[in-house]
Nucleic acid binder design. Structure first.
Lengths: 128, 128
DNA sequence: AAAATTCGTCGACAACTGTAGTCAAAGAGT
DNA sequence: ACTCTTTGACTACAGTTGTCGACGAATTTT
């Protein structure tokens, strides 16, 4: 099993872009991040370095610059972070957590139906 | 509206105990925390101080020692933390998050039924 | 009363975060 | 060739977090 890397808020933002499309240059990333975050290029570079140092992102030389690619999977990262969150905030209780999200977010009927379907499928699977 | 305080991992642990029962002395808290965390009393004291500094916990003199009580509500704290988590990890998409938890945790039929009931209720409420 | 225990306050220190400036090397433009 | 720009490497610096130890005042124990 993987060592479950943890990422900071800022690192998540960068990773999300790399999961959407990769490889990308730091410049491309800067362009996408600047509007929402106002981060200077130095900031983005620092974050990328840290991600590379952590082994979450890989580089590939492309002339003068690097091309960055995420090597950790989004699903796995979400899993780890969700687990930690669940533990910390809801003491591991999935039901309270689900209740919380069902109640505090206005789900559309569409979404509710999706979730109901998921639940049904899960119930069947666990049966045998 | 409240200012939505953020708490660290360690602070959550302390808060959870105070939500369960309050007021409590630092000693009582130490006793409950020691088994799971191996924290020395100094550590617990530091965490309590920080929580008081943040305005999340109040003290009440009780002879030589203090009695600590949480002043932030558990529900409100969970709400804030859940919001931040949802944003950071699932980009605000409640459905993907729900799907994630339904799929990755072995819910008992009991729990599934509870959640289904919640969904049904929500659906009805939103209707009108 | 002297010694041992208990408490809260301070100070400490390394790792992690957010945010960015500086600088030298490499390339691009003229 | 010479200057302007881009890029990664390195440095910086304050704030947060995890973890405590030291210390002096207050209490309890002996």
């Amino acid at each position: 099993m993987k060592n479950a890397l943890r990422f900071s808020d800022a690192e998540w933002r960068v990773l999300k872009l790399l999961w959407q499309r990769a490889p990308q240059t730091s410049q491309e990333l800067c362009e996408q991040l600047e509007p929402e975050t106002n981060w200077k290029p130095s900031t983005v570079k620092t974050l990328l370095s840290r991600l590379v140092a952590k082994g979450a992102v890989q580089t590939e030389a492309h002339g003068r610059a690097y091309l960055f690619t995420a090597v950790v999977s989004e699903a796995e990262s979400q899993r780890a972070e969700a687990q930690s969150f669940l533990e910390r905030v809801f003491s591991g209780g999935v039901s309270p957590l689900m209740a919380h999200f069902v109640e505090s977010h206005d789900l559309t009927d569409e979404q509710i139906r999706e979730i109901e379907a998921l639940l049904k499928k899960t119930k069947r699977k666990d049966r045998k």
